[in-house]
Nucleic acid binder design. Structure first.
Length: 493
RNA sequence: CGGGGUGUAGCGUAGCCUGGUAUCGCGCCACAUUUGGGAUGUGGAGGUCGUAGGUUCGAAUCCUGCCACCCCGACCA
């Protein structure tokens, strides 16, 4: 265990976040600029996320496949807007061989004779290589839809990185689907947005606002970008997932046509959608406190930890026997349990350690409990402790896990409700931004110019045009021009 | 990439101004006593002072380049 340097959320949110990621053993910086090492405990959480998302993708008819890491430059540039959007942050492979440096013993140099005829782009996203492939897969409407997802790594050469929130290389899934009609593609886009929202709220316990991006914030190459937006504890917004309706842009760029039932040729309609290891950042920032991580039971690698307490040898026997009995009973119900029977550490040490790691439920069992047929149960979210009779313990723990899942969602939901402010004037807008970080609902005249000016003056961007907000006549907070709907502003990660 | 800061053992640090071979705490290893909220004692191991040069008899300390990280911008999921 590392010595814990305590920084409070309220003192320095960034430092608190960085310390937490390291101290809870989730990830660390690597020798490669901007890239992180995801450590076993952090990766275990990501695997839980993957497993559930993957299940939902398959349930909605998708299959996994894998496409190359590299994209030849000529393919990459085919869809102009997409290429332009990502051009500034691409890593490029220009050579395929090193050789020993004659002027510098023991060192290697790029072999100038091994220059590639065509540069390879390390994928920042895979539309290009995938749509180039789909062209060969699609001839008839009978070949559609294609519903494919891939789990992969991508590289975006960011200037400023932060563990999980923005790294130069990150892990994600990207779904890429092809459809015969616009309606079907749009329905797919919305369906996957729902999958993401459901996952965020019911598994991550993070409430999200579903919406549409403005033109400024739209994915490069998309006709429409849908997104889910979460609110972090420091009042900043985090884009947690996007689902794009790509229209026929990629089909046209890669010449992907199909013959319809009516024997007519038409371009294929496309969608793509993705979530990344950034979700780890959202999870950490949404629930954790000054004691450490708080994990929702549905994603916690360890849901219940059992800490045995004993002095004498005969106590140890009795306590461990009980502890194993409980552990097995819980495991048989599919609950992931860790029995921490290390003898070098005191119970207090272990309590603190599992709090740091966000384990939802802790069971302590000592000689006193063995005698009374009880256990001490502590929940991470509220830090409440109670002595429970062992009768029906498994059911009680199952119930408690459900309660914790609900409670941390409710807490996050309440927090968000308190931090969405409706404003009507520009003064109010600026005042709220400065004094009460969070989401702002305000009228906007619908132009890119206004959005850009607001961003320049306040750093706030339109996170989305919420899908479920009612139409309402009003005046743009910035220009006073007419508006039909409030949009969601915030400073964002 | 611009402005500010940091880099000394696994972690947190003192020393740097005023140059003389590195301090303390946690952790680690061994043994003993301990264990219901971060145990105690005794003994021990662990350092190219981020890195590459320069100045000097001598560099953690002074100078230069580079690298990484943090904070604030620009860019972005």
């Amino acid at each position: 265990m590392v010595e814990v340097k305590k920084v409070k959320r309220s003192e320095n949110y960034s430092e608190w976040y960085n310390n937490l990621v390291k101290q809870a053993d989730l990830a660390e910086h690597s020798a490669v600029k901007g890239c992180m090492v995801i450590k076993p405990y952090g990766y275990a959480i990501w695997e839980k996320m993957q497993a559930e998302l993957d299940r939902q993708f398959k349930e909605t008819g998708h299959q996994n496949a894998y496409f190359p890491l590299f994209v030849p430059k000529s393919l990459f540039e085919a869809e102009e807007k997409n290429a332009e959007g990502f051009a500034k942050e691409c890593a490029i492979v220009t050579h395929y061989r090193l050789k020993t440096d004659p002027d510098n013993k023991g060192k290697l140099m790029v072999d100038p004779d091994a220059k590639l005829e065509e540069e390879l782009i390390v994928r920042p996203t895979s539309e290009a290589i995938i749509w180039n492939t789909y062209r060969d897969w699609i001839q008839s409407y009978r070949d559609l839809p294609i519903l494919i997802n891939q789990w992969a790594n991508v590289v975006r050469w960011e200037m400023r990185t932060r563990l999980f929130l923005r790294t130069a290389e990150f892990l994600w899934q990207e779904g890429h689907t092809a459809h015969a009609t616009k309606e079907e593609a749009l329905a797919e886009t919305k369906q996957m947005l729902e999958v993401y929202a459901d996952f965020a709220e019911n598994f991550m316990a993070v409430p999200v606002i579903k919406g549409v991006k403005t033109e400024n914030e739209r994915f490069a190459g998309a006709d429409e970008t849908f997104c889910i937006e979460g609110l972090m504890q420091d009042g900043k917004a985090l884009q947690m997932g996007t689902s794009h309706f790509l229209g026929q842009n990629f089909a046209k760029a890669f010449d992907v046509k199909f013959v319809s039932k009516e024997n007519k040729k038409d371009y294929v309609w496309a969608t793509s959608w993705g979530v990344s290891t950034r979700l780890m950042g959202a999870l950490i920032m949404s629930h954790s406190d000054d004691e450490g991580l708080v994990l929702p039971p549905k994603l916690a690698p360890i849901q219940v930890v059992i800490v045995p307490i004993f002095r004498k040898e005969e106590e140890k026997m009795a306590v461990l026997e009980k502890a194993r009995e409980y552990a097995n009973a819980l495991k048989s119900k599919g609950i992931s349990v860790k029995l921490d029977d290390r003898e070098g550490q005191s119970p207090g040490f272990k309590f603190a350690e599992y709090e740091l790691k966000g384990v939802p439920v802790r069971i302590a069992i000592g000689p006193r409990d063995v005698q009374n047929q009880t256990v001490e149960v502590a929940r991470r979210d509220t830090k409440e402790k109670q002595v429970m009779a062992e009768v029906d313990l498994v059911h009680k723990i199952e119930h408690l896990l459900t309660q914790i899942q609900q409670n941390i969602y409710q807490k996050a939901l309440d927090f968000r409700a308190e931090n969405i402010t409706t404003v009507n004037t520009w003064d109010e807008f600026k005042n709220v931004l400065e004094n009460k970080p969070g989401f702002i609902l305000a009228h906007w005249d619908g132009t890119s110019e206004t959005e850009t000016k607001i961003k320049e003056e306040t750093k706030a961007t339109i996170r989305c045009i919420p899908l479920d907000s009612a139409l309402e006549e009003g005046k743009c907070v910035y220009t006073g021009n007419p508006s039909k709907q409030r949009v969601l502003f915030a400073k964002a990660y």
